[in-house]
């Protein structure tokens, strides 16, 4: 394909975790995202290239990859912001099993999400009165600061503790638990605190703050995990949960 555009040197990871980088040349355009580049390679050079995306606007959390060594959401990352000397290296997320090429297996991520009791447990039925949630209450402010997670897995890929400790639940999972612990409507917070205080839970976090540094939407899971640590210690002294 002939093109008058400047060419970008792109290295894409091919194969499983034991695979390797393969070099491509892709025409460079203005406002081109990393996801655009990956898509161009699949559409024009190699239809067998595997990767994952859906919304392309930073809503679904499907397209995260490692770009020049940093985990990023690729649909909202401009090539101009990350290319170095006209080159960019794109790999699958760290800390996940690789299915093929740039697509990782999210199953362990969501299994840990369940283990952290990241599912809302209703305390009322449809026949009960709606609970009035005060936006200015301490609990609701804590929820609002942590609620926007799109489960892209960037924090999980960036986390050193996830890398070292296979039991560690992970920053996104604990952040989700923190939003529910602060939700007055939830009925299972004792069980949730028990889950996040168990082996591999919030007390394993080293507060390196990589999750906060890399979160594409600016959440601070480290702060949420610190909140969970305080709540678990309080629950321990109250006798609600045991060691």
């Amino acid at each position: 394909m002939l093109s008058t555009e400047p060419l970008l040197k792109v290295s894409l990871w091919r194969g499983g975790r034991d695979g390797g980088f393969q070099a491509y040349q892709v025409p460079q355009y203005e406002n081109q995202t990393v996801l655009d580049v990956v898509t161009w390679v699949q559409r024009h050079i190699d239809p067998a290239l595997s990767y994952r995306f859906a919304c392309r606007v930073g809503m679904c959390g499907s397209c995260a990859m490692t770009v020049n060594g940093r985990p990023r959401w690729t649909c909202r990352t401009h090539i101009s912001a990350v290319a170095k000397d006209g080159a960019v290296e794109i790999a699958p997320l760290e800390n996940f099993p690789v299915i093929k090429d740039l697509a990782v297996d999210m199953q362990p991520f969501f299994e840990k999400w369940q283990a952290a009791k990241g599912v809302f447990a209703p305390s009322k039925t449809r026949r009960d009165e709606m609970v009035a949630l005060r936006p200015g209450s301490v609990g609701r402010i804590a929820v609002d600061q942590a609620i926007g997670c799109i489960n892209c897995g960037v924090c999980y890929a960036a986390c050193d503790t996830v890398r070292w400790n296979k039991d560690y639940l992970g920053p996104a999972q604990l952040n989700r638990a923190w939003t529910l612990v602060n939700d007055v409507r939830d009925a299972e917070n004792t069980e949730r605190l028990r889950a996040v205080a168990s082996k591999g839970g919030c007390l394993s976090c080293h507060s390196h703050q990589s999750c906060q540094e890399y979160c594409p939407i600016g959440l601070n899971p480290t702060a949420s995990i610190a909140g969970l640590k305080r709540r678990t210690v309080q629950a321990f002294f109250k006798g609600t949960i045991s060691a």
Binding site: A197, K199, L203, S204, K229, T232, V233, F236, I241, A243
Partner: peptide, 8 residues
């Protein structure tokens, strides 16, 4: 880490 060790 257990809560007891964490508190200690």
């Amino acid at each position: 880490m257990s809560i007891r060790l964490y508190i200690w």
